[in-house]
Design a protein around this nucleic acid. Structure first.
Lengths: 243, 243
DNA sequence: ATCAAATTATCGTTTTTTGATAATTTATTG
DNA sequence: CAATAAATTATCAAAAAACGATAATTTGAT
């Protein structure tokens, strides 16, 4: 373990399940002597990535909040997309969650989301939560835009269950311009996604709406696809203006 | 330069003013050979802290979004405070911004904020933005809770303009239980802050409201102080329950 | 003030980083 | 599609930093 990964092995211990760690616990968990972890933690605290918590415990530090703000202020997709998501859910006038997602290593991450006022959809998609690469409209729509070589390498690492079936689906998305999946991510929910890309900014993302399966009839589905296509168009235009 | 600071010297280059960097630019800016920066950037990209942007440029990566979510999910102050801020601004029924802030190195950072629906106050306080340690009600209220030795060291490093005056003000905050400052941070705005602390969780923070000076009469001011005190009380109770 | 636990300091050894340069890959353009 | 330039990675010996066992110190709670 060396370089950055030394620090990440500590930071990745801090999860929802266990958000408070002592140094001996960390040392045990990552299999490294405590004296080394004391040094590592000291550096992380000095830079604000960890902070002292209750008696000899540590928690994630505010530096992440600071850098997250910098992303909100500067990332083209987030900056341009966030206000657009607000407009989108307002136009939908139906319980839904709108999501802007992008590739994140071998997964997909939601970079911005917006909930229709008061909607109580139990969706897994949530800003900052990594999601599987090959399931759901949001992810598949991102994959459908990747250049062949990149896609092949990604899928090889992720060893998808049915690569042939998947590549057929991706071709269909490229052809139709959108993707609809039912219950692939969350039971009882439907995802409708359209591609968002800008090669100049090296962005390949997707814009999606999650709605309850039970309340979605054909008419509404058509309307949502249209709204998404038009929102994605606006988004692409705005991105082009930034580039 | 070594350890974590090697990576931070790169990450800190990414600002609102310049959010896109090439490796040679970074090398020039931090005074290190390009071959070294190529290696550093490669590690940061591998961990998701940077990502490739338009032609040979890099921008901040989604890992910050992921860790920020982890903070929202696990940090006691943020987790408990965020819904409380929403309730607070709703009860205020007056254009305002509510802010939860804490110490962040030699500055203060806003860890959660909430804007009264539609309020257009041009306030500097914003989630994730570091603010000066010795100016404004939000910061002074945090300082007023620190143990003497800690405070002295902080102020020594920050070399405050008028330490005597400041320590008088801090004593007054401890006595009154709140702090009101006018135009110390933003011209034409007033900050009203109350302390939030929980020694078990090693939290010393402040809860504040920012309102326009012009619209604030004595009656409203009294009401806001009362609302803040009661919200801080709820917050402290909730924190105690967590500990 | 005392005690236990947490944290930092020490130091020879081992490992990693460094930076100049060469080799390779990638993107662009005629 | 070849040619070119730019970006990126690989190489390698010297220099620097990290390691980890242990000792010393600090901190926090009686």
């Amino acid at each position: 373990m060396s370089g950055l990964s030394r620090f990440l092995s500590v930071l990745r211990c801090f999860t929802e399940a266990k958000a408070n760690w002592t140094v001996p616990e960390l040392a045990e968990a990552i299999g490294v002597p405590a004296s080394t972890v004391y040094r590592t933690v000291r550096e992380l605290v000095a830079q604000g990535f960890l902070e002292p918590s209750t008696e000899a415990h540590y928690r994630l530090g505010s530096a992440f909040i600071e850098f997250d703000r910098m992303i909100r202020l500067t990332d083209p997709l987030v900056k341009v997309g966030s206000p657009l998501l607000r407009d989108l859910v307002a136009e939908v006038r139906h319980p839904c969650v709108a999501v802007l997602a992008r590739l994140y290593g071998d997964r997909v991450i939601c970079a911005a989301d917006e909930r229709y006022d008061g909607a109580e959809l139990p969706t897994s998609y949530e800003r900052g939560r990594p999601m599987p690469l090959t399931r759901g409209a949001t992810s598949k729509t991102i994959l459908s835009q990747l250049p062949g070589r990149r896609l092949k390498k990604l899928l090889a690492d992720a060893d998808a269950d049915a690569p042939a079936k998947l590549s057929g689906e991706l071709a269909a998305i490229r052809k139709r311009g959108h993707c609809i999946t039912r219950g692939e991510v969350d039971k009882g929910l439907v995802g409708i996604a359209v591609p968002v890309s800008n090669s100049e900014l090296a962005i390949s993302a997707s814009l999606s709406l999650v709605v309850s399966d039970a309340t979605l009839d054909e008419r509404l589905e058509r309307r949502l696809v249209l709204l998404l296509v038009s929102a994605a168009d606006l988004l692409s235009q705005a991105l082009r203006r930034l580039a």
